[in-house]
Nucleic acid binder design. Sequence first.
RNA 1: CGGGCUGUAGCGCAGUGGCUAGCGCGCUCGGUUCGGGACCGAGAGGCCGGGAGUUCAAGUCUCCCCAGCCCGACCA
Length: 475
Amino acid sequence: MAKITSRSTDYSQWYIDIVMQAQLADYSPVKGCMVIRPRGYALWEKIQSVLDSKFKETGHSNAYFPMLIPESFLKKEAEHVEGFSPELAVVTIAGGETLEEPLVVRPTSETIIWSMYKKWIQSYRDLPILINQWANVIRWEKRTRLFLRTTEFLWQEGHTAHATQEEAEEETRKMLLVYKSFAEEYMALPVIAGEKTEAEKFAGAVKTYSIEAMMQDKKALQAGTSHDLGQNFAKAFDVTFQSPDGKLEYVWASSWGVSTRLIGALIMAHSDDRGLVLPPRLAPTLIRIVPIFKTETRPRVVEYAMGVFNNLKPHFSVEIDLDDNTSPGFKFAQTELLGIPLRIEIGPKDIENNEMVLVRRDTGEKIKASPSGLIDRIKVLCEDIQNTLYHRALVFRKENTVLLEKYSDFTEFMEKEAGFVDTGWCGDSACETKIKEETKATIRNIPLGRDELQHGACIYCGKPSCHDVIFAKAY
RNA sequence: CGGGCUGUAGCGCAGUGGCUAGCGCGCUCGGUUCGGGACCGAGAGGCCGGGAGUUCAAGUCUCCCCAGCCCGACCA
């Protein structure tokens, strides 16, 4: 087993080593595409299952729309086509014949969905429509990275239709908060929810919101987005409804999504030089038992360990490693590489005392435990691991976030320290562009929930500020 | 899409134009081990990324293509 490159040596290589060695994904023969391996896919299934029930709780239903979209559909919304055309994959030949109209492989599904909503919506009584789909999409990216930006990726996309602007905006914000709570409570990933600037918003949206997280290299990662689409797609596809007072009005829309990129976020937020670190609430395997035995002690130790295993099995996702050919040390290293949150070591000495050793993946701490009350003990411990990961990430973000007022401090910070800068912005995209050119940092978002401005002036031009913003270099 | 680096056994690498392409790890078999990545012995495993060329002779030189990594440009 090759060693993992340390984060301090080469952060990018460290990330690749974790993905490959923890068997989350592998490269496919096609440029920019990846195979998600069982350990990676199990993680995605956990994410799916939690989010899916949150979507259902908030009134949404799943559906499926086809992957192939008539090229002309993409062209109906001006900004949308402009935003996506450079990264489209297009089918021009099928069944051995040149197609009359090329088919685009979906980069997102607004157009196909709104072409259908036109058929389904006539009256205000047909609204709202609250649909989600789990799907794959293709975007021909120039530069790809495992999980973070791949040519094909898996995601969910919610697409809702509403009778009023207020309702669509409320939906947009509601789903953003669903993402935020998922990131914080399940991924143990603190995020900043906020609004995107004009330059960073989704092609075709009126407003875009995002949740932004800090990775261990202090760069920002957009972990989820939601869009208030206004009436842009309704107008492009001529989707109207008759209101109670008999008038025809265009429908209001939202869309929102998270992708397999979340797995990249999880890796980069918590993992260390020993391997993957996963929060207990999302880890496909929560516990692995490692019995420690010699040939003569094997029967006794395995019997005891199997007893513990069978006791835990109804309550947790638990494995036992009975391999005769690898040493305990190797097995310990494996559980750490794979990110299993809790390891239970059981050897002859433990059995004599009727106890075992619990080892936390997050801290490496070893804790003696007896079989009585074990289940509750583990539940508490896992909650503690979950909280520790969250607070560690939160402290890291706080330590690497600065409030700045002077541009010279800003450039110096971006050059030397890097991290998040909380500052003021006049709202002019010219200042935003200049800053990006000069420092590579972009406005990640305009944080929500601030009652009053904390900064008086724009960091770049010094004119009165109209937004507090978070600047960072981003993935 | 531009610049740089890389591609030889599953992984990491070595290999002056010249005979049968090596090493470490891993893998298989046998044995001894086993509380932090065990050890000994015996094996298996190769279209040298793909194609075209130069040459008596190419893993090695030239060109084209493909893929990966890094830096740019681009990027819900």
